[in-house]
Simulated scan of single mutants.
Amino acid sequence: MTHSEGHDSQPTARTTLPLFPLHTVALPGVHLPLHIFEPRYRQLTIDLVTEVVPERLFGVAAIRNPTIDEVDELAHVHAVGCAVRLREARRLPDGRFDIVTTGHRRFRLLELDTESAPYLRATVTWLDDEPLPVGSEETVARLADVGRAAHRRYCSVAWQSGGWQSPPQDTEPALLAYLLASDCLLPLADRQELLEERNPLRRLRLAHRLLTREATFVSELRAVPPPQHEIPETLLRPNLN
């Protein structure tokens, strides 16, 4: 059965991706480790490793309601998701996989195909950022500085071990907000808002606001969450096993 969103009027070219609905939000440029145990997603992993799926890309869409166990219609997931690329796959003796993916590019869901493959497939259009305004370099630099400062404040109170790093100085403005926010244990709704924001300046402002808020919460509650994207070095090697 194929379900259609039915209200997309953009002339953007469509493409088809395998779709993995999750109770989390994938962000461009951010690592997302996954433990694969369901048979259909084991098959997806095999198809990614063997490049049956082009470019080792699949889509991740956040499930709207935590009580939903089976996604079979568009209303069950957020309309904007992120394609991720498989970087590493480690097969376990019982057939499960531990994999690492990296967020690649945002998309809007148009149709959901529940029949043509063992796993879900989706028809999507890509979503790109609005262009930065001419002469916005100073604004970008200022927002990057305050965003990095908020990131340092959050990490200094949330990670008592000090085992965190700021994003590289040459990080593109379009990716910086995602990387700053990836170290923070944000609610799904906040991560989804970041994903859907297509204006890089507003996204940096949003990341600053969220990090500042969360740093205050952590300080007041004296709770120390673990790093969300702490991935062993062995899983970040470029070759698939």
Rank of each mutant, 00 (worst) to 15 (best):
P39V: 00
A144H: 07
A189P: 07
G6M: 01
S4T: 14
C155P: 03
A61T: 02
F217C: 06
L185P: 14
E111R: 11
E130D: 14
R108N: 12
Q160T: 13
T125C: 09
E230L: 13
R42L: 06
P39D: 07
E115T: 15
P21I: 06
F37K: 03
D128R: 13
L127H: 05
S156N: 08
T123V: 15
A75C: 09
V140D: 02
H7I: 11
R85L: 07
P18W: 05
L109C: 12
E196P: 06
G6I: 00
G95I: 02
V218G: 07
L74T: 13
E172D: 15
S161C: 13
L120Q: 06
V124G: 03
I36W: 03
G103R: 01
S116F: 09
T2A: 00
P18I: 02
L127G: 01
T212F: 10
L221D: 10
D145A: 15
L186M: 03
R153H: 14
G103N: 01
G103K: 07
P168H: 11
R213E: 12
R209A: 14
A141M: 10
W126T: 01
T16N: 08
A117D: 10
L127S: 02
L110P: 00
V52I: 11
P39Y: 00
R87W: 04
A207E: 00
G29P: 02
L127D: 01
P131N: 11
I46Q: 12
F97Q: 02
D113T: 10
D8C: 14
I63T: 08
E197G: 03
G103M: 05
S219I: 10
G162I: 07
T139E: 15
I231Q: 06
E214R: 07
P21N: 05
V80D: 07
L22G: 05
I231L: 14
D113G: 04
V49M: 10
E214N: 08
H104G: 06
P187E: 12
L44M: 11
P118F: 00
H23F: 09
R42D: 03
L185C: 09
T101S: 04
A189M: 14
R56V: 06
T125V: 15
R91M: 13
I99N: 00
A26D: 07
T212S: 12
E55K: 11
T101A: 08
N241E: 13
H35T: 15
F20R: 08
L112Y: 00
V71S: 01
F217T: 10
P238W: 04
I46Y: 10
N239Q: 13
L120Y: 02
V224R: 14
L74A: 10
E197Q: 08
H78E: 14
Q165F: 15
W164S: 03
L240Y: 02
S166C: 12
A144E: 10
E88Y: 11
D183T: 09
A117P: 00
A158H: 01
Y41F: 13
R205Q: 15
V77F: 00
V71P: 01
H23T: 10
T2E: 13
H3F: 15
R106N: 05
